[in-house]
Structure formats: structure tokens, C-alpha cells
């Protein structure tokens, strides 16, 4: 388990929003490259090599595809590089395409990372804060889905060994599958009755239900959340005052470098690096403690 995923769910959620909002809405190459750098580093820390390898095989072609598509279809921009089928392929469109794919890839990678970090326990907790009933429902559903899947597998394998699937005919097989499916639904209703009994037997429905979670907000959680929000505010301040404005068309403007813009870059960089810092801090601390064993 990674150190970052041990943080409080609210801190994780804050981190998620602080990294995604600028990445999605500020069209500034520095911000986008920072976001990509952060997401790649974070992914490489929390995933094992094998997953990273198979991910590269997916994200690199996607990146190239998106980068190439834009100049082929968008002919805006003042600097034509060459002509294709009588249409100009412009430098600006190429650059815009590259930065769009940087943006999309980094957002996808962040979503992947947080998909790993925010597990079902955390989701249930986050919802449960405002809607306790919904959180119980979610939790029960998360228990129920694998149960249903297993039941389906068992029933269809039992039907198979009874010779109920003719291996040749597709329509026959689909018909049998539907039969199995309806029986599994019947079973799940039966199951729901028992579950309801079990809930009643343990006093569900009594007034004054409380909501327990295993998560505890620690000082570190609070510090990190505050840091996140401070960084986000500074970044957004840069964006709202227009100091981060960057135009691709008709010509690529220079990268903004006013003091506020620099401060915004830096604060967003901190945002993007917090996950790695948390991870490596834990790793260093562990090495240090282990050296004392």
C-alpha cells in the first residue's frame, strides 16, 4: 500500500481536485507539462513495472494519435509548414495538438492514479459524510456484485455439465444464458430477503444511527490539505488575473513570465509533486528507521 493512499479520504479528494482543475481549465504549456510530469512520476511510484509497461503501450499511441489528428483537421494558424491535399498544415496547429494531448494524457493518468488511491472504502466514506444511507447502500452493492458474478459462474457451469448448452447453435446458447440469468436474479431476490433479516437482527432501522469509519484526520492530513488549497488559490489567482494567458492561434505567443505567473507555476508544481513527496518521504523515513533495526 502506498503512503499517499493512507491519507484521509478528504485529503485525497482535495488533492485530486487541486491537480485536475488547473490541468483541465488553464491552457498554459507550463501548467500542462507540470501536470504530465507529476502524473507520470506518481504512476511510476504506485504501480508495479508490469502495469507501467502495459500502460505505456496504451498511452503513447494515444498521445501520438491525438497530436497528429489536430493539424490534419484544423487549418488555423499563420505559419504553414506544408500543404496536404491543398490544405495547409500549420505550425500552430501542430503545437496546439501536442499540448492538447499532453493535457488529455495527463488528466487520464491522474484519474488512473486516483482510481487506485481512492478505493471503495474511501468512496463510501466520502459519500457517507453527507448521505449516510447512500453510503450503506453503496457498501452493500459493492458486496453484492462479486457475489452475483460468482453465482452466475457457478450456475452456468452447472448447466454446462448438465449438457444444457448445445455447443453449435448460438441462438440456443443465448437462450440458455438468459435462463441462467433469470435464475440468478431469482436467487439474488432470495438473498436480499436473508440480508434484510440479518440487518434487522442487528438493529438496523433503530433511530439515531451513527456512522463509523476507520479514517482519522491526522495533523499530516490537515497540513497537506491546507498546502493543497493554498497552492491552488495561488495558481487560480494567476489564471483569473490573466497572467497565465497563452494563445496558440493565429501565432504562438510567448510563455508568460511575470512574477505572478512564475509564482503560479511554482505553486502548481508543488501541487503536482505532493504525491511523490509523500511517497518518497515515507520511503526515506522507512530506510532510516530500518537502518536502526
Amino acid at each position: 500500500m502506498s503512503a499517499y493512499s493512507k491519507l484521509h479520504p478528504l485529503t485525497c479528494l482535495v488533492g485530486y481536485l487541486c491537480i485536475l482543475i488547473p490541468a483541465m481549465f488553464i491552457k498554459n504549456p507550463v501548467i500542462q507539462l507540470t501536470s504530465l510530469l507529476g502524473s507520470v512520476l506518481f504512476l511510476s511510484v504506485i504501480c508495479d513495472r508490469k502495469t507501467i509497461g502495459s500502460d505505456l503501450g496504451f498511452y503513447i499511441p494515444l498521445f501520438v494519435l491525438m497530436a497528429v489528428t489536430n493539424p490534419l483537421f484544423s487549418h488555423n494558424g499563420a505559419t504553414p509548414l506544408f500543404f496536404m491535399n491543398g490544405n495547409p498544415v500549420t505550425l500552430e496547429a501542430v503545437i496546439y495538438g501536442i499540448f492538447m494531448s499532453v493535457m488529455i494524457t495527463s488528466v487520464l493518468l491522474w484519474c488512473k492514479c486516483y482510481g487506485i488511491i481512492i478505493n471503495s472504502d474511501k468512496i463510501v466514506y466520502l459519500f457517507g459524510k453527507s448521505l449516510p444511507k447512500l453510503s450503506l447502500l453503496l457498501s452493500a452493492a459493492l458486496k453484492f456484485i462479486p457475489e452475483l458474478k460468482r453465482r452466475f459462474r457457478l450456475t452456468s457451469s452447472a448447466q454446462k455439465t448438465l449438457g444444457q448448452y448445445s455447443t453449435e447453435s448460438y441462438t440456443d446458447r443465448i437462450k440458455r444464458m438468459c435462463g441462467v440469468f433469470s435464475s440468478v436474479i431469482g436467487w439474488s431476490l432470495e438473498n436480499a430477503v436473508e440480508k434484510n433479516n440479518s440487518m434487522k437482527a442487528r438493529g438496523y432501522g433503530m433511530p439515531g444511527r451513527s456512522n463509523y469509519s476507520i479514517f482519522k484526520m491526522t495533523a499530516a492530513d490537515k497540513t497537506i490539505s491546507v498546502l493543497y488549497i493554498a497552492c491552488l488559490s495561488l495558481t487560480l489567482a494567476g489564471a483569473f488575473t490573466g497572467k497565465l494567458y497563452f494563445s496558440y492561434y493565429p501565432t504562438v505567443s510567448g510563455i508568460p513570465d511575470s512574477p505572478l505567473a512564475l509564482a503560479s507555476y511554482f505553486s502548481y508544481f508543488v501541487c503536482a509533486m505532493i504525491p511523490i513527496i509523500v511517497e518518497s518521504e515515507e520511503a526515506i523515513r522507512w530506510k532510516y528507521y530500518r537502518s536502526k533495526i
Binding site: S139, L142, K143, E194, M206, S210
Partner: peptide, 24 residues
């Protein structure tokens, strides 16, 4: 199987106590 209500062990253990309205 069918008497387990929630998806995590810790939540299942706490379920009855939550119903009793006991503080965290």
C-alpha cells in the same frame, strides 16, 4: 454469505454498533 451486509470486514463489524448509535 447472505448475512454479510457490507463489503469490508471492518464495516461489517461496526454495522451493529452504528445501528446502536454509538460514537466513533
Amino acid at each position: 454469505d447472505s448475512q454479510i451486509v457490507t463489503d469490508s470486514v471492518w464495516h461489517e463489524l461496526a454495522f451493529g454498533l452504528e445501528n446502536m448509535g454509538i460514537p466513533s
